[in-house]
Design a protein around this nucleic acid. Structure first.
Lengths: 198, 198
DNA sequence: CGCAATGCAATACACTCGCATTGCGAAAGG
DNA sequence: CCTTTCGCAATGCGAGTGTATTGCATTGCG
């Protein structure tokens, strides 16, 4: 067996270039040559690690989804031990809005993939998996709130709300501040009062 | 002056082809040749009515935005005289969700343009105009509700929610039924009780 | 030392893209 | 009539696309 390189790492490195390109210039700008240039590698290398463009895009979408998920997990654990349900949900959803530097880089790429998922079933399926997990987790947290009747509906409301806020912030329809205020207002409705257990 | 044709009508006819194509196959499939084929005209004609692809896309986006607006106005007037604020807002937002045949055709095209607006300022500006008008109108209706504190925030919440619901329905993340239930649940929160004045 | 398998660069290929150009038929004003 | 102007079809062009192919350097195994 000849040379050994970390196959997975190389693929993720190329996926990062795909996402960066998609975020700044949209998925239209994601061509094999541009991706290679963005990653600082040759086009042959890109071809070596992906059977075709579609597979590359699908992998890149899964990669960025994983990155977001990991970032969310970090934000939640950063809350310390025994956080309130409200704080957990807020931290979770806050990571989806383009507030931090990392999220600002990822959000445009996510919306680009989202739009493509409307016409590409392979992406839509991958999207559904992640979305279902997210809504399930939120629903679970909401169920912990006394007096909450329909956790599934509330969870769907929250994810849809954040989804919409993300695109509205990215298109400059609302300021990031307002988006946060809207999210907090809605969390108040579900969990009652302000931050913490209150 | 030679032959006379309705310039505006021809442009809108081509714009309809753009939207249909974008809805079914995404904006990637919107090429001058494909648009011509979809509209059943020659490519020369498409070029004759638009200076370039970008102008065509911008016009198509404005055209579909206008069509949605008109459909919303119809739905609202169809409520009859003196409708409750809740019913007006519900009819308005319901037309944005892919429920009716017309909306199901338009929604995918809208999301395609939305994603492009993230990286194309010209589209984003046009989007902001329409969005601001929509939020303003909703805020006005909400202000009519006694005891409502922050109409602007509530209006932003509603538009973001519907935005998110639209994409989640289109990507198969939630069923249309659930989306309607979520919308109604949230309208209840703002306007109180069920439909009508209750 | 072979030597085969791997990682990758380079290039060729068949298309397709948006755009510019050319030309011509039809129709309204002089 | 006849000339001018508009509406449009047809074609060509250069750039860029995804994919396939070729070739070679490197490397671990026998």
């Amino acid at each position: 067996m000849p040379k050994k390189v970390d196959h997975q790492e190389r693929r993720e490195q190329i996926a990062a270039a795909v996402c960066g390109l998609a975020a700044r210039q949209g998925l239209d700008a994601v061509t094999l040559r541009q991706v290679a240039a963005e990653a600082g590698v040759s086009m042959g290398r890109v071809q070596h690690y992906f059977a075709g463009k579609d597979e590359m895009l699908l992998f890149a979408f899964r990669a960025i989804s994983d990155r977001v998920e990991r970032r969310i997990a970090e934000a939640v654990t950063a809350l310390g031990p025994d956080p309130s349900a409200r704080d957990v949900v807020r931290a979770l959803l806050g990571e989806l809005l383009p507030l931090s530097t990392a999220a600002r880089d990822e959000a445009p790429a996510l919306t680009a993939f989202l739009a493509r998922a409307v016409v590409e079933p392979a992406l839509a399926e991958s999207l559904r998996e992640g979305g279902a997990g997210l809504r399930g987790f939120i629903a679970e947290k909401i169920r912990a709130v006394p007096g909450e009747r329909d956790a599934v509906r509330e969870a769907a409301t929250l994810t849809a709300l954040v989804d919409g806020l993300m695109t509205q912030v990215l298109t400059g329809q609302v300021e990031a501040d307002l988006a946060v205020a809207v999210l907090d207002l809605h969390l108040d409705r579900i969990f009652g009062g302000g931050p913490g257990a209150r």
